[in-house]
Design a protein around this nucleic acid. Structure first.
Lengths: 145, 145
DNA sequence: CTTATTGCAAAAGTTTTGCACTATA
DNA sequence: TATAGTGCAAAACTTTTGCAATAAG
């Protein structure tokens, strides 16, 4: 984790941004919750535990900054707010989500079997794909029956 | 279109809901804009042209009602509001969206080549898929170069 | 020291809700 | 006529912004 923080620090400093304590705390929270899908409010609450005098606006501004530098990415599960995951869009490590409609559990899917479909879209529409997002809705093993 | 309205009327009446003039106007707007992706505010503005004394709350309540009865479905393009399309989720007519990051154009994709991926998820996760949503991000023919 | 960054509070934008009034079946 | 449905206004949420104060490099 220490290394990741240093890496991010470098990325930011290369572009004349600072890794302030607030930003570092926010980054830590995101790293400690890689498997979760935190909203801005979630991040705020978690950061406040260790740094009580942080502002919600700072969380939003930092998340925006991290998004711009492809340090994190956001997903929208349609529950009224964006959710954030550590890891950028451009590194090829896309993963998808299966969302259980009963218990709300979210399963990460690391398969990437969209090539066939993407090839068709590229050929037929002349659309140059840079990223994709797939959500599967249904019922998980525990809720299926 | 007349037939579609009658169908919807039946669906609602079967479950003891009424097809009021407001609901009918909202349905008309959705039918007349099948190719667009209207926000609640968009629907409100369009309905107001013909029925000026409709309330925004009614639009939201009606969209919610239509969603519940699988008459429409919603998509979230991450621009701050949900967008609505005529047609339910359960009829197998899923289609996907390719979103141009430059001009914002949205291309509908009617291919459905996700079987292979879905089979894997079903087998490996025991996840019963009822619906899926795919978004491709990139650049359209006009913006690609 | 200089300028990016912060916290706070206010504002903006979308969606929901309470309530008295209306109109449908 | 009983009850579902409506419009309005207020409230609830998420996110953004202005600004004076602060702190990082």
């Amino acid at each position: 984790m220490k290394e990741t923080i240093n890496e991010v620090s470098k990325i930011l400093k290369q572009q004349e941004y600072k890794l302030t304590p607030q930003r570092e705390q926010i980054l830590r929270v995101l790293l400690e919750n890689k498997d979760k899908h935190l909203s801005a409010e979630d991040v705020y609450t978690l950061v406040k535990k260790k740094t009580p005098d942080v502002g919600l606006a700072t969380v939003y501004r930092t998340l925006e900054l991290f998004l711009e530098h492809d340090i994190i990415h956001s997903v929208n599960f349609g529950d009224g707010c964006k959710r954030y995951e550590f890891g950028g869009q451009e590194d090829g490590h896309h993963h998808h989500h299966a969302i259980c409609l009963k218990c709300g559990k979210i399963i990460e899917i690391n398969e990437d079997l969209l090539e066939e479909l993407e090839d068709k879209v590229i050929k037929e529409q002349g659309f140059k794909i840079t990223n994709h997002e797939l959500k599967l809705f249904g019922y998980c093993r525990d809720c299926a029956y």
